[in-house]
């Protein structure tokens, strides 16, 4: 019995997920016909790489959004950590990667602590920290782009296992698997959802709600930092604003994946659909060489439609 075998996933959930997958498949196939170079190996590789980066950042965003909070500093943290790797890798080699990740984690933890203990709404905390961190990127880079040339760091993103599966895809798959496990089968995963539904429920279970919140923001910082590192390694250089697209794209990926922007409903498992969808779509528009302004117009519209298909609108009593 498929239905009973999945804890967080019931019949309605499955149906809704099926709708998203269906839309995604149709869109993908249609694109394939429209753009002849869509199905080539090189293009598929490109989609894999960029969706890996977005997926990693979106996973962190999912837990934050499930709680009903939001993290607007994802792009800035990604830029900072990418730049940090570019700065440090000539001296430290691959060691610069864990260091950058720890810095990302620290940014996230600070976001969480300020949000929880100074009682400032997360949207404002992360709006502020995003600006601060963006400034810090300029500070550590002198406002210039830096190249990443350390072979070990480059290989982390651009190499491939047995020349078939790109490392970036492997890494993101492992992180995704771990995140699904955490989301479905740990206290942290259950409690983020409970907090998003109503903090009182979690509190009445004797859970320290504040601790969970800080953990979720720290996770978001860690993963967006790592996404920035992977992006820099993939591009072979770090620019000051390279991660900024991620802030809104992660939110979109999460919401297209069926997680409610108000929290309390959704699943990290579904976020992968959102991530793949966004990346594929912008890839196709690039291949078709659509002018950038037209791309933006189409992408915005498509995202609205995807959200329309994939959220529980009827149940939202107060749409804010």
């Amino acid at each position: 019995m498929l239905q009973a075998s999945r804890a967080g996933c019931n019949d309605g959930e499955l149906r809704r997920r099926a709708v998203t997958i269906f839309v995604f498949m149709i869109a993908t196939v249609a694109f394939g016909f429209v753009a002849p170079s869509f199905g080539t190996l090189a293009n598929i590789r490109a989609i894999e790489l960029s969706s890996s980066v977005l997926l990693i950042a979106s996973i962190g965003a999912t837990f934050v959004i499930l709680m009903g909070s939001i993290d607007l500093s994802i792009g800035a943290v990604a830029s900072f950590c990418g730049m940090l790797v570019a700065r440090l890798s000539p001296d430290l080699g691959l060691w610069s990667v864990p260091i950058a990740c720890v810095v990302g984690l620290a940014f996230g933890a600070i976001n969480g602590l300020v949000y929880v203990y100074l009682r400032i709404p997360s949207i404002l905390v992360t709006l502020g920290s995003a600006t601060t961190i963006s400034g810090a990127v300029l500070f550590i880079s002198d406002g210039r782009s830096l190249s990443v040339s350390d072979p070990a760091v480059i290989d982390m993103a651009q190499g491939a296992l047995a020349n078939v599966v790109p490392n970036a895809v492997l890494i993101s798959a492992v992180i995704y698997g771990a995140a699904v496990l955490v989301g479905d089968r740990t206290r942290f995963g259950r409690m983020t959802l409970a907090i998003g539904s109503d903090e009182q429920i979690a509190a009445l279970m004797g859970v320290r709600v504040n601790a969970i919140k800080v953990q979720a923001f720290a996770l978001s910082g860690l993963l967006s930092g790592f996404a920035g590192v992977l992006l820099a390694a993939r591009l072979g250089s770090a620019t000051v604003t390279m991660g900024s697209y991620m802030t809104l794209d992660t939110i979109t990926a999460v919401v297209v994946g069926g997680t409610a922007i108000t929290g309390g409903s959704g699943n990290v498992r579904l976020t992968i659909i959102g991530g793949l969808f966004i990346t594929t779509f912008s890839d196709v528009m690039n291949i078709l060489a659509l002018p950038p302004y037209l791309q933006a117009i189409i992408q915005g519209t498509v995202i609205l439609v995807a959200v329309l298909l994939n959220t529980r609108r009827a149940s939202a009593e107060d749409v804010k």
């Binding site: 959802l193 409970a194 539904s197 109503d198 959704g266």
Partner: peptide
Amino acid sequence: SEGIVPYMSVQANMSLA
């Protein structure tokens, strides 16, 4: 608001404590 998580399954709600 304090008893159940509506978008969680029956089994996940029952095991919450």
